[in-house]
Amino acid sequence: MGEPNGAFFSNPYSADSNKTYTLITGGSAGGLRTGIAQKAPSPAFDAKGDSLAAAIIKPTNFAGIRFGLATTSGPAISVSGGHLSGQIDGLVAEWNKQVFKQGNSVTGTYSAKTRRYVLTWSALIKGGPFNGFTGHWRLQGTFSPA
């Protein structure tokens, strides 16, 4: 996560040796689904503030509290010549009983042969304790048709 001063937030609980990267893995639904919303459960948090939104990613420790991802609307992604483009407008990151909009236009690559994809996007956080910070996202995995 980029800070307003250009530095990056160091997450000491990251599994990566570079703590400015926080590694995430697929959740109970296997990952991000296009076309449908993967909404957060209700309640969305436990008493501690850990996110209970576990469908897209496995809630992951960020500075001591787990964050999860949810979508409020179905992502729309298309492929053309191995290039991905689309919108994940409704993506939200949920952490510490707070919700941060993290949707935006996405771009990426897709291999029809291996079905492996990479999606990247950035989203400026507006409002709240991380106002002015920017979430930089990279999702990679294997595409599975429904």
Partner: peptide, 10 residues
Amino acid sequence: IQIYFSDIAS
């Protein structure tokens, strides 16, 4: 203060 928070969390 936001940066402080980042420093404190680290």
